[in-house]
Nucleic acid binder design. Structure first.
Length: 708
DNA sequence: CTTGCTACTCTTTTT
DNA sequence: GAGTAGCAAG
């Protein structure tokens, strides 16, 4: 038998070698579904006539796509990749639309607006409709439009049941118009426009069906209506469709994902073959039992029995700590202990939480302890101001119609081109059907700022000219220097240097990619996801949200903040459907763990500088006591343990101005974190950690240290 | 037009 | 507690 197929269990083998025709693999967590998917693709590429069959595989993240490509080129050799299109729905649709730009009625150079851009555009929509942002929150309107696009509802078909709906509809029309005027698409457009194109244009549809003779979809439970429509359009005729999913891990309903697509699949493809994968290769039975105990409480689900041959393993630790800070310290301390005992390496450990804001307390604890960590998401690299600014410069060169990017940089550094001038420019350009660049060049805007505008347009034009001849890297450097942005950023402060370093990091990305075109670079950058750039080779624990943890596994998992209001989140409490999703979220978190699981919650939580007593999460009650370490009985017992663990009291003396963990700023060293504080006469001796220079001993009275 | 101040809302989760 | 919108002064 093919060596490709060794090491697969019978169910996996059945899935990998299934005959052509619609297949749904219902895969529990840790059942090797990624492996099945990759081997299925390999199997198809190997057994089908090379000239006929190509494969489209849809993964949930770009990271997964990259890993699949790596595995396949290892298994089959690099040339096999020629017949494979693999990526997320978004990246594959972006490629389709670019390829078929003419048929789609799009300019091939369209850019993709990220969430920041989308929000900025929405704000200008509301402004032009004279709507008060207080009353109609841009984010809320945008969310409604996004939902509509995910369900393939055009502006004209938007259902009007309230005054708010009418506002949304008007905003929807205007928002789309502005996107077009900017030669831009938002994330949702990538899918919706692709579907519309395939519905409208028979030739494109036929071409696409031929191009993708096999279609494979990972994380099928997280597809939305539009994505399902796309899959159906492409696969309905040849029916060579292979989906992998787990309804219990559906955690994206809030962005339009509809696990009922699993039922639609059954309806639309009556010959659908369903193959379950129940054996788990990841976790101990203790962890699986806990996971099943949690998920079992959700109604309306098929009963899946997860089993493993990895043994029972250590029991699960459930623990109450005093507050978020102690919780974080417990995590850091325990990780240290685990690493010291050699129970796991730091890089095999993850800390998960419901909301990004919770990473804060954890980060501070890691910094205080001088322990390394990796953070996924939150302050995403590509969301940083200096990165967005730099990209905006590149984007206006690539696409002079992009007014959102132009607005970002036209007066950064300050050039005397303010809001008024920009508004006028935008107005004139739109009225005459010109790009802002053309409008300036034709002298369409006069007044005091005209001179400044001319000067900027000249620069801009010269960058465009350069972009035609020079490499991306040369263009990058040239723009930074001649725009004045480099000097502007490097203002001599600590923070400025850090921001400049980030820009240099972006430069490295370009340099390493080698010979990338401006268009390709921008297209790639706008679709990177949080987990995409997380480096597995670094030996440090990972901090990430439960959502971002999907598809990953770790030997040791900590889940923090397991209290009512956090998980389940307070915004979900009035809706049983949403609480069910919160439960699935915890299920996903638990099943990431291979060996050890810690479930923590704080007794007290501070919220906007107010302290609240919290209830432990209702989900914790569903855990059978025999799976848990020690007795978790009442709150008092847990609290005693928490303080017992705390070897030294951290309660500060009332006279001290600084406490460990305080964020401070210093005139020379920039911002830092207080590690310790001890009274000396009337003064305090402080130990402060600065990211720039490391640890310093300072006097509270004389160092000029300020609390942040 | 820019800067610096005060007041205000806001915390889910993300391609 | 923090980022930002809005306002007043330079």
């Amino acid at each position: 038998m093919d060596e490709l197929l060794q090491k697969l269990n019978p169910q996996q083998l059945q899935a990998v070698t299934a005959e052509d025709g619609p297949v749904l693999v219902l895969a529990g967590p840790g059942s090797g579904k990624t492996r099945v998917l990759v081997h299925r693709v390999a199997w198809l590429l190997r057994t089908r006539p090379p000239h006929l069959q190509a494969v489209m595989a849809v993964t949930f993240t770009n990271k997964a796509a990259r890993e699949m490509r790596d595995r396949l080129s290892h298994l089959l050799g690099h040339s096999a990749l020629d017949r494979l299109a693999v990526g997320t729905f978004h990246s594959l649709c972006a490629r389709l639309l670019r390829r078929e730009a003419d048929s789609a009625g799009l300019d091939r150079n369209f850019v993709i607006f990220d969430s920041d851009d989308q929000l900025a555009l929405m704000k200008s929509v509301l402004k032009s409709l004279n709507l008060d942002e207080k009353k109609f929150r841009p984010a809320a309107i945008h969310a409604a439009i996004s939902r509509a696009k995910n369900e393939l509802i055009a502006p004209a078909a938007y259902p009007l049941q309230s005054y708010f709906d009418e506002i949304v509809q008007r905003a929807y029309v205007q928002y789309n118009a502005l996107l077009r005027a900017n030669n831009a698409l938002d994330f949702d457009d990538l899918i919706m426009e692709s579907v519309l194109l395939l519905q409208r244009d028979e030739h494109v549809l036929r071409r696409s069906r031929e191009r993708y003779a096999h279609i494979l979809v990972d994380e099928f439970q997280d597809t939305n209506v539009a994505q399902y429509a796309l899959v159906k359009l492409l696969a309905m005729e040849h029916r060579r469709l292979f989906c992998v999913g787990d309804p219990d891990q559906s955690i994206y309903a809030w962005r339009g994902a509809d696990y009922r697509n699993v039922y639609r699949l059954r309806q639309d493809f009556p010959d659908l073959r369903v193959i379950p994968l129940e054996q788990n290769y990841r976790s101990t039975q203790t962890i699986l039992d806990a996971a099943m105990a949690v998920i079992r409480k959700n109604a309306q689900r098929q009963h899946i029995q997860l089993f493993t041959d990895r043994g029972r393993g250590p029991r699960i630790v459930v623990r109450e700590l005093f507050d978020e800070r102690e919780e974080a310290e417990y995590v850091v301390e325990t990780i240290r202990e685990i690493a010291r005992r050699g129970a796991a390496q730091r890089g095999e450990i993850a800390v998960m939480y419901r909301t990004n804001a919770q990473s804060r307390a954890l980060e501070e604890a890691f910094i205080r302890a001088g322990e390394p960590y990796r953070l996924v998401g939150a302050t995403r690299f590509y969301a940083r101001r200096e990165i967005k600014d730099t990209l905006a410069y590149l984007r206006i060169v690539h696409n002079p119609a992009d007014t959102v990017s132009l607005q970002r940089v036209i007066n950064v550094p300050p050039r005397g081109i303010g809001e008024k001038t920009f508004a006028q420019l935008e107005l004139v350009a739109r009225a005459r059907g010109l790009t802002p660049l053309q409008a300036i060049q034709q002298g369409a805007v006069d007044g005091r700022a005209a001179k400044a505008l001319q000067a900027f347009a000249e620069r801009w034009q010269s960058w465009i000219a350069l972009s035609a001849q020079a490499s991306l890297l040369q263009l990058f450097d040239h723009i930074l220097n001649t725009s004045g942005y480099a000097d502007y950023l490097r203002d001599g402060t600590q923070e400025g240097e850090e921001r400049w370093e980030n820009v240099q990091e972006l430069r490295n990305v370009i340099a390493e990619a080698g010979g990338l075109s401006l268009a390709d670079f921008l297209a790639e950058v706008s679709l990177v996801s949080d987990v995409d750039d997380f480096d597995e080779r670094v030996d440090a624990p990972v901090l990430l949200t439960l959502h971002a943890a999907k598809g990953l596994e770790f030997r040791v998992v900590f889940i923090v903040g397991l209290s009512e209001g956090t998980l389940p989140h307070s915004r979900t409490l009035d809706d049983p459907e949403q609480i069910a999703e919160e439960r699935r979220l915890l299920y996903v978190g638990i099943t990431r763990a291979q060996e050890r699981l810690y479930l923590l919650y704080p007794f007290r939580r501070s919220f906007w500088s107010e302290d609240d007593v919290t209830e432990p999460s209702r989900f914790l009650r569903d855990l059978p006591p025999e799976l848990l370490e020690g007795n978790v009985g009442g709150r008092a017992g847990a609290k005693r343990k928490a303080s017992q663990w705390q070897s030294e009291p951290v309660k500060p003396k009332a006279s001290l101005r600084f406490r460990p963990g305080d964020r401070v700023s210093h005139p020379h060293f920039g911002s830092g974190v207080v590690l310790s504080s001890a009274p000396i006469g009337d003064d305090e001796e402080l130990e402060v950690f600065f990211p720039s220079v490391g640890g310093k001993r300072l006097s509270a009275n004389f160092s000029g240290l300020k609390q942040l």
